[in-house]
């Protein structure tokens, strides 16, 4: 049923694919953080057209599956001459998909900053950029940090989807091993355990952060 020797034999191969999974998560997350903020600012724009278009795009991305978006980026973009490596396509898909969630998080953070802070920024003659960078965002971001952290963990757990566009991350590595030896039990279980080992401590740490944040705000 379960062969320890076999498990230890395949473990190094699977673990070495972990860096693909982790780097996809990190790059995708940075992309999501930046693009998410851009959505938020565009949606807040005074220009009705810009605001509505951005809002529409965000709603569309949020209401369609990540897997299908990955297929779209990987298979449709080349039709227009834009062929992407699986890693690049995967990271763009992940980043874009989660940017729409982060945009919502930023929005709620920004709305939690009272109107008085905007007024005092005007009274002290801050320009728009400085108002955001010095006054609004430093207050809007800390309370939502735990939620942002949660999305980081969620993204990490979504990276196996990138195997569907042929990225050889840990799940695909396990699948490949399974296909060549006809033993799926050990490789797939190892993948599950690795995810648990990484994401559980992270979510425990986040819960601590959340307690700290609720105490402060």
């Amino acid at each position: 049923m379960w062969d320890w020797n076999y498990a230890f034999e395949v473990l190094p191969d699977i673990a070495s694919a972990l860096w693909v999974t982790i780097s996809a998560t990190l790059v995708g997350f940075v992309l999501a953080l930046v693009v998410g903020l851009i959505w938020t600012l565009l949606i807040r724009s005074n220009n009705k057209i810009i605001s509505n278009v951005a809002d529409g795009i965000v709603k569309f991305i949020r209401n369609t599956p990540l897997l299908v978006q990955l297929y779209f980026i990987f298979y449709v973009f080349p039709q227009f001459g834009l062929s992407l490596e699986p890693f690049t396509a995967g990271v763009i898909g992940l980043g874009l998909h989660y940017s729409t969630y982060l945009s919502e998080v930023y929005r709620s953070g920004i709305e939690s900053v009272g109107p008085g802070q905007w007024e005092v920024a005007t009274a002290l003659n801050f320009d728009t950029r400085k108002t955001w960078t010095r006054i609004i965002l430093p207050q809007a971001i800390p309370p939502v940090l735990p939620v942002i952290g949660n999305y980081f963990i969620t993204m990490f757990k979504e990276t196996p989807l990138l195997s569907a566009i042929t990225l050889v991350e840990i799940l695909q590595t396990a699948q490949n091993i399974g296909a060549s030896t006809f033993r799926y039990t050990e490789p797939l279980t190892i993948v599950g355990v690795l995810f648990l080992l990484l994401s559980y401590p992270a979510s425990v740490a986040l819960r601590q952060l959340e307690i700290r944040v609720t105490e402060r705000y």
Binding site: G116, V120, L124, F126, Q139
Partner: peptide, 26 residues
């Protein structure tokens, strides 16, 4: 300049930083 009914201090800055912020930034 203006002083507000509800103060509107910057909660993420110390008292000194509150007073220094605009001279430096603006």
């Amino acid at each position: 300049g203006m002083v507000f009914q509800h103060f509107h201090l910057f909660p993420h800055m110390t008292v000194l930083e509150n007073v220094m912020e605009a001279p430096v930034t603006v």
